[in-house]
């Protein structure tokens, strides 16, 4: 089993690296865009309003009194979650849709390995490597802003995002597999595209969660996004160990739950697909 899983991980890593090289320009655009958004959230309101009011409003979102530099850092870190959710949900889902519904790579996968292992490995490898690629800009940014301490912050942020990405990968695999193999939906990406805004809106990234309707919060709280959002706020303001440990505990529970459900589901799915 382990060897089989390792083979798939190697194959997927190779595929992701080739794609990263081929689509590097897309990544560069997303780095620039995310950096622009994260700065704009503070700087544009500041240019048309009072600096103190903007910082005070932003501080109320985080729950800690911030200065301008820290507010910008919080904004940069919070903004990094947006592309992570986008790639983990959209790219993992679209890969499954494409492979088994449109470009017909399914037979190549099914003749080489077991679908169960493939789906599990894809959930981890694709989301993990894409997260690494999409957040690579944080390393130079954090090192520039915080010098050597920035490297430590980057490692904590990256670790938190990686754990979140893996959980999101499993979550998306479940949803995408249900759509692909249990429905006759012709345009499955329409459903997948709804997920990131639903998850992000209830996660408290730029909008305080108490103003968000309950159903959206429920949608968000079955994913790791609200928890990682909290961790990133804490990391940017003060490195608080209890907050990080709380996140790790919740992430472990979510990861275990999704892993169990996905394993059971994909075992049944294997039978159904070959049927």
């Amino acid at each position: 089993m382990f060897i089989g899983l390792l083979n798939i991980v190697l194959a997927l890593t190779y595929r992701e690296l080739v794609w990263f090289r081929r689509f590097l320009a897309d990544y560069v655009v997303s780095w620039v865009f995310t950096a622009f958004i994260s700065l704009s959230i503070i700087l544009i309101p500041m240019s048309i309003s009072d600096v103190g009011v903007v910082i005070s409003r932003f501080s109320s979102l985080v729950g800690v009194e911030l200065d301008l530099g820290t507010a910008l850092l919080v904004s940069v870190l919070l903004s990094s979650i947006v592309p992570v959710v986008a790639v983990c949900v959209n790219d993992v889902a679209h890969t499954i849709f494409a492979e088994f519904k449109f470009i017909d790579v399914g037979p190549l996968i099914l003749e080489s390995t077991t679908l169960k292992y493939y789906l599990l490995a894809n959930a981890f490898v694709r989301s993990s490597l894409m997260t690494l690629g999409i957040t690579a800009y944080l390393l130079p940014v954090l090192t520039y802003v915080l010098s050597s301490y920035g490297i430590l912050v980057f490692l904590i942020v990256e670790l938190s995002l990686q754990i979140s990405a893996m959980i999101l990968g499993l979550y998306t695999t479940l949803v995408a597999s249900l759509i692909t193999f249990y429905t006759n939906v012709s345009r499955p990406w329409v459903i997948a595209n709804l997920l990131p805004p639903l998850i992000l809106s209830g996660s408290g990234i730029y909008i305080p969660t108490y103003v968000v309707p309950l159903i959206l919060r429920v949608f968000a709280y079955v994913t790791p996004v609200p928890y990682v959002s909290k961790v990133l706020q804490v990391v940017a303001t003060c490195l608080s160990l209890p907050e990080v440990l709380t996140f790790l505990t919740i992430a472990t529970i979510l990861l275990t739950s999704y892993l169990l459900v996905t394993t059971v589901f994909s075992t049944r799915l294997e039978f159904r697909v070959r049927r």
Binding site: I3, G4, N7, I8, L10, A11, Y14, R15, V18, L108, I109, S112, T113
Partner: peptide
């Protein structure tokens, strides 16, 4: 070429 290498890795 890349498709074949991917297939080979998947096959073990």
């Amino acid at each position: 070429y890349e498709n074949l290498v991917f297939y080979g890795l998947l096959k073990g």
